[in-house]
Design a protein around this nucleic acid. Sequence first.
DNA 1: AACGTTGAAATAGTTC
DNA 2: GAACTATTTCAACGTT
Lengths: 85, 85, 85, 85
Amino acid sequence: MTDVGGIAAEQLRSFIERIERLEEEKKALQSDIKDIFAEAKGNGFDVKIMRQILKLRKMDQAEVDEQETLLDVYRQALGMLPPTE
Amino acid sequence: MTDVGGIAAEQLRSFIERIERLEEEKKALQSDIKDIFAEAKGNGFDVKIMRQILKLRKMDQAEVDEQETLLDVYRQALGMLPPTE
Amino acid sequence: MTDVGGIAAEQLRSFIERIERLEEEKKALQSDIKDIFAEAKGNGFDVKIMRQILKLRKMDQAEVDEQETLLDVYRQALGMLPPTE
Amino acid sequence: MTDVGGIAAEQLRSFIERIERLEEEKKALQSDIKDIFAEAKGNGFDVKIMRQILKLRKMDQAEVDEQETLLDVYRQALGMLPPTE
DNA sequence: AACGTTGAAATAGTTC
DNA sequence: GAACTATTTCAACGTT
């Protein structure tokens, strides 16, 4: 292992490059999403409305999840669940 | 106006200090909130549950707001509102 | 929490509402800060740099130095700096 | 959008779902990145500094220099630097 | 008391 | 250049 200034240089480089690759992939996906919006717009759909719909669907799901969490928290508070499962 | 390096130093200092004061006030409020949680806990309430309740109340409100925004967006898309009010 | 409809429920509501009020105030302060940045920008100042200034004024010098030293070590390990400057 | 129950609605649903799928994939990648940072940390690397490295590798040198120069001007204006170093 | 988790705040990039 | 979106960063919090 090559040590530069007390650092395992090769290992560091490997971590950095793996992250950069994944970030590239993320960027590509973002670009795909952009393309879909553009395609939808070309088909006469209103992108702004689509974004609102997506946001609402996300919020709805979050709300459901949150309700279930709250339920569990209450259950635990009332001793209806093992303390730490 | 005292110019240092081409910068209106007095004015800059004034902006910076005003912001720092407001941030102090924010910090104080945050501390107050913490105290209330502690007080509630001392009265037998479960802080975790309280946080869940606060989160849900916020989400509900956000959802209502979002619905109204969506409605407006639809209205505008359908020509029921002036384009840019 | 079991005394729904009685004292406990009232007390819980009170705690929740006090916290919500304080959070509203925090939001208002945040908005004031935003306004000051906007005003500064209107007077030709660079908001981003101002934020860095604020951050530096919060940090102690030892911290700043340590971070910069470590960053250089990593940069050298990755060949991002000339070998012996 | 007016053709509810017909082709348009189906098409809209398709666009929405494709986007949601891509966003899921993005989330998964983000999670992978998180894991790598955790692994690096477990190997003794400083995650915060790694982030700075990643940012520097993205920026061009001219940008970096310009920011630092401006920051010094502001610091001098506020007396945060010795008058003539 | 370090650790990871989460939520808020800031920055950067994109669109109009 | 103004507004919006998305990403990143930072700080608080509970957890172990």
